[in-house]
């Protein structure tokens, strides 16, 4: 009994986790307008999704935002990790502390603090404010991923490069970047997904000029049930799954 009881329990929890997602996916192919009764197989909600111009535009906006936020946060995050790993400088603990605060503080606290900043400094709410905010909350995750990779790294390689006359920049480019490449890819994918999924921060720092997907979904699900959301949710699920598998594949492959 002690052998199978834990397994049954694990299975039960996974069932609870996946039933809502399963229902969502199955009903995205439902021909019936009501969200509760089965009316036969159909792709009509996917069609109506792609016929909705505002929706398609929000999709492109979200993708572009996620791409740029992931790229910028990977660059700055990698440089931060390298600086923390290699340089001695004043206030290193403060820097670490700030990254930790970003990661641990509730999203809503980060959201209002950024809104206050943007409004008082006069940054218009739209693409730029969203980008700055998304890069900020993705940053600590990239730093941690890259730091983990650097911590197991043989220090004699950069020293050898320096002895052979390479400048700091050349050494970073030719020795360190190739070493942290898998971590950069994994961090980029993580940032991309975090950005695509964010609701809380985006609600505060986006403006009418740049509508993104989560906010569009938010306004749809607040009132009643919309079968288009099932279709969109299914697409997002498949998309995240592919991204997650990619990042796992990159990380495990690089360990061998």
């Amino acid at each position: 009994m002690t052998r199978w009881l834990p397994r049954v329990y694990l299975g039960l929890v996974y069932l609870l986790l996946y039933v809502p997602i399963g229902v969502l996916v199955v009903f995205s192919f439902n021909d019936s307008r009501s969200g509760y009764t089965w009316g036969g197989l159909s792709l009509r909600w996917y069609q109506s999704l792609f016929n909705n111009n505002a929706m398609v535009e929000a999709m492109w906006n979200s993708l572009w935002l996620a791409l740029s936020a992931a790229t910028v946060s990977t660059i700055i995050g990698a440089l931060t990790a390298l600086a923390l790993h290699r340089y001695r400088f004043r206030g290193k603990k403060v820097l670490n502390g700030m990254l930790f605060v970003v990661m641990m503080s509730p999203e809503i606290v980060l959201a209002i603090s950024l809104l206050a900043l943007f409004l008082l400094v006069g940054i218009q709410l739209g693409y730029v404010s969203l980008l700055l905010a998304h890069v900020t909350f993705c940053l600590p995750f990239v730093v941690i991923t890259v730091m983990a990779r650097l911590s197991g790294f043989d220090e004699s390689l950069p020293e050898a490069a320096r002895d052979l006359g390479a400048s700091d920049f050349t050494m970073t480019r030719t020795v360190l970047i190739p070493v942290i490449m898998p971590a950069l890819l994994a961090g980029w994918l993580l940032g991309f997904t975090l950005s695509l999924d964010d609701v809380v921060v985006s609600t505060f720092v986006s403006g009418p000029s740049y509508e993104i997907l989560p906010l569009r979904i938010y306004s749809m699900v607040r009132v009643g049930l919309k079968p288009e959301v099932n279709a969109l949710g299914t697409l997002l699920l498949v998309f995240s799954l592919v991204m997650l598998m990619l990042s796992q594949w990159i990380l495990t492959r690089s360990k061998r």
Partner: peptide, 24 residues
């Protein structure tokens, strides 16, 4: 982790489908 990487709004909406008065 897979569900955790899926849009949290969409997952909340999925629960709504299950819990509604005439839900599943």
């Amino acid at each position: 982790i897979v569900p955790f990487w899926t849009n949290s709004l969409v997952r909340t909406y999925a629960l709504k489908m299950l819990l509604a008065t005439n839900g599943l």
